[in-house]
């Protein structure tokens, strides 16, 4: 019996130590800078898969995407139901091309608030870009473990009014500096969305989240799983890659 109690105490002590107590002391800004370093890309091409869990059924959308920095991206859906549907994002503008109608529309107004292709990721979520530190006051509030990995816990409070989420809480992997978990809160303090990273891969010196799940916390159940594969960093892109001509070509 004494042996059992000793083992239990040892296990608890080990768990407490693994709960991120051993991470180096870094400032919130330094942590965020390292996260931004991982996320900052020159150009990137990948194949994306969105699995949208609607509770009663799951929609699967596959697309090819290229991006330049965080401000420009071009997406073309390749799954049979949406084949040929394209998105073009340039800074804060978003256009969508419908092949059947051969029509390009600009997504604006309340359409921006709707889920992209029926997912839990709104068009506005997709349009958010720029360094986090410019828009939020960042505070380190502790260390916790997420999926067995020690994490820094950061709290982000909006310092400008024009941000989607007034407050965010991020769990940053203490060794790889990627976001493993994020909670997005409304102005009222209500939890709106939660994301969890499902897979993290190393590309040269960079760690990158290649699969994550986003859940709308105003609804019960459901969620969208977003997976990237065949990632290629720093690919050469044609000059007109992010143009309306290419979108409707």
């Amino acid at each position: 019996m004494r042996k059992l109690i000793f083992l239990a105490a040892l296990a608890a002590a080990t768990a407490a130590s693994a709960a991120g107590q051993g991470l180096p002391a870094l400032s919130a800004e330094e942590i965020m800078r390292r996260v931004d370093e991982n996320n900052t890309i020159g150009s990137l091409a990948y194949v994306g898969l969105m699995e949208i869990d609607l509770g009663k059924r799951v929609l699967t959308k596959e697309f090819r995407a290229v991006a330049q920095g965080s401000s420009r991206s071009f997406v073309e859906f390749v799954n049979p139901e949406d084949r040929g549907v394209r998105y073009l994002k340039v800074d804060k503008d978003l256009w969508m091309y419908f092949p059947a109608e051969q029509e390009t529309i600009k997504i604006s107004g309340h359409l921006l608030k709707e889920g992209m292709m029926g997912s839990d990721v709104s068009y506005e979520d997709a349009l958010e870009s720029g360094a986090v530190a410019e828009r939020y006051d960042i505070k380190l509030v502790g260390q916790e473990t997420v999926d067995g990995r020690p994490c820094y816990v950061l709290e982000l409070d909006a310092k400008v009014r024009a941000v989607s989420y007034e407050r965010q809480k991020l769990w940053i992997d203490g060794e790889r500096f990627v976001t493993l978990r994020a909670e997005m809160y409304a102005r009222s303090g209500r939890l709106l969305k939660e994301s969890r990273s499902l897979a993290v891969q190393r590309f040269g010196g960079r760690w990158f989240v290649t699969s994550m799940r986003m859940e709308d916390k105003l609804k019960r159940g459901g969620g969208t799983t977003f997976t990237m594969r065949e990632l290629q960093f720093d690919v050469a892109l044609p000059a007109d890659m992010f143009s309306l001509q290419r979108l409707s070509r």
């Binding site: 941000v163 409304a186 102005r187 009222s188 209500r190 709106l192």
Partner: peptide, 15 residues
């Protein structure tokens, strides 16, 4: 729960 964007485009939700 009513959710909407504020005049400054921040998401808000309240009961």
């Amino acid at each position: 729960t009513l959710a909407a964007r504020t005049k400054y485009d921040a998401q808000n939700a309240d009961d």
